[in-house]
C-alpha cells in the first residue's frame, strides 16, 4: 500500500513538473508579447527590461533595439538611453529609425557636436535628416534657420504636426527691451505694461508717483532744507531706477517665456514622433 502511494506521488511530481514547464513564461515569444503589452500601455520603465531580455536572446533584433531607444525617450531617461545606445548602436548603425532615435537622444541631452559628427554625417533618409536638422535648429532657438525647413516638412505626412509650431516660432512677436526702457523712462511702469505685466507696471507707477509727490510736498513746505523732501526724493529716485531696470528685465522675461512655450510644445511633439519613420 505504501509503495503504491509512493508511486502515485512520484507520477504526480513528474506530471506537474512537466506541466509547469509548458508555460515557459520567460521564453522569447512570451517576452515579446509582454514587452509589447507594457509598451502599448505606456509603461515604458517596465518595458525596458523586457525588451532587453528579447535583445539578450536575439542580439540583432532591430525592433527590440528601436523600442528600447524609444522607451528611454518616452520615460524621460535620456542619459541612460544614450548609455544604452552607445553600447548597442554599432550593431545596427545603418538603420534609419535607430539613427533618428539616437539623434533624438543626443538632442535631448544637448550633445550637438556628436549629433553632427555621427548621425547627420551618415546617409539617413531625407525625411529623417530634415527632422533632425530642423529639431537641432529649434532646440538652439535658431528660428530663421528652422523655418527654412518649412517647405520640406509641409510635404512630409509624418511631420505635419510640426508645421503650426514652426509657423508660430517664425512669427514670435518679440518685445523690444529698448522700447520698454524708453516707455518706462517717460511714464514709470508703462514698459512693464507693454511687456505684458500690467500689475507690476501699475505698482511701479504708484510707488514712483506717491514717493515723488511726498517729496514735492516736503520741498513745498520747507524748501530745499526739507529732510523729508530729500528722503522721499531719494526713495522715489531709487524706485524710478528700479522701474527702468525692471522694464528691460520684463521685456526679456516675456521673450524668454514666449520662446520656452514654443519649445515645450515642440519638445512634446518631438518626443512622441517616431513611428512615422
Amino acid at each position: 500500500m505504501k509503495n503504491r502511494l509512493f508511486l502515485i506521488y512520484l507520477l504526480n511530481l513528474i506530471f506537474l513538473s512537466s506541466h509547469a514547464q509548458e508555460q515557459d513564461l520567460f521564453g522569447y515569444s512570451n517576452s515579446v508579447k509582454f514587452a509589447n503589452y507594457l509598451y502599448s500601455s505606456h509603461e515604458y520603465d517596465l518595458a525596458i527590461p523586457e525588451f532587453k531580455r528579447i535583445l539578450f536572446i536575439d542580439s540583432l533584433n532591430t525592433l527590440a533595439n528601436i523600442k528600447i531607444h524609444d522607451c528611454y525617450i518616452q520615460a524621460g531617461k535620456y542619459t541612460e538611453g544614450i548609455k544604452f545606445s552607445n553600447h548597442e548602436f554599432h550593431k545596427l548603425y545603418d538603420n534609419d529609425t535607430l539613427s533618428i532615435l539616437r539623434g533624438k537622444l543626443m538632442i535631448l541631452t544637448d550633445n550637438y557636436p556628436q549629433l553632427n559628427s555621427e548621425i547627420l554625417s551618415n546617409p539617413l533618409s531625407s525625411q529623417g535628416l530634415v527632422f533632425l536638422q530642423m529639431s537641432e535648429s529649434m532646440f538652439n532657438k535658431e528660428w530663421d534657420k528652422a523655418s527654412g525647413y518649412l517647405p520640406f516638412i509641409e510635404n512630409y505626412n509624418g511631420l505635419q504636426q510640426f508645421v503650426p509650431i514652426m509657423k508660430k516660432a517664425s512669427n514670435i512677436q518679440y518685445k523690444n527691451p529698448a522700447l520698454s526702457f524708453s516707455m518706462s523712462a517717460i511714464v514709470p511702469g508703462s514698459g512693464k505694461v507693454y511687456s505684458g505685466y500690467w500689475k507690476d507696471g501699475l505698482f511701479s507707477f504708484l510707488f514712483v508717483g506717491i514717493t515723488a509727490w511726498q517729496s514735492y510736498r516736503g520741498f513745498d513746505d520747507k524748501g530745499i532744507q526739507s529732510i523729508y523732501g530729500w528722503l522721499m526724493g531719494g526713495i522715489s529716485f531709487s524706485f524710478y531706477a528700479g522701474n527702468l531696470y525692471g522694464s528691460v528685465k520684463a521685456a526679456n522675461k516675456k521673450n524668454f517665456e514666449m520662446e520656452n512655450l514654443i519649445l515645450k510644445e515642440y519638445e512634446e511633439a518631438f518626443i512622441s514622433t517616431y513611428s512615422n519613420f
Binding site: 505685466y197 500689475k199 505698482f203 510707488f207 531709487s238 524706485f239 528700479g242 522701474n243 531696470y245 525692471g246
Partner: peptide, 20 residues
C-alpha cells in the same frame, strides 16, 4: 546694479501677481 535690481524686486513684492 545689485541695488537697482533690488529696488525693482522691492516694487514687485506685493503678492498681487502670483500668476507671473
Amino acid at each position: 546694479e545689485g541695488i537697482v535690481n533690488f529696488w525693482d524686486r522691492f516694487s514687485r513684492c506685493n503678492g498681487m501677481s502670483p500668476e507671473y
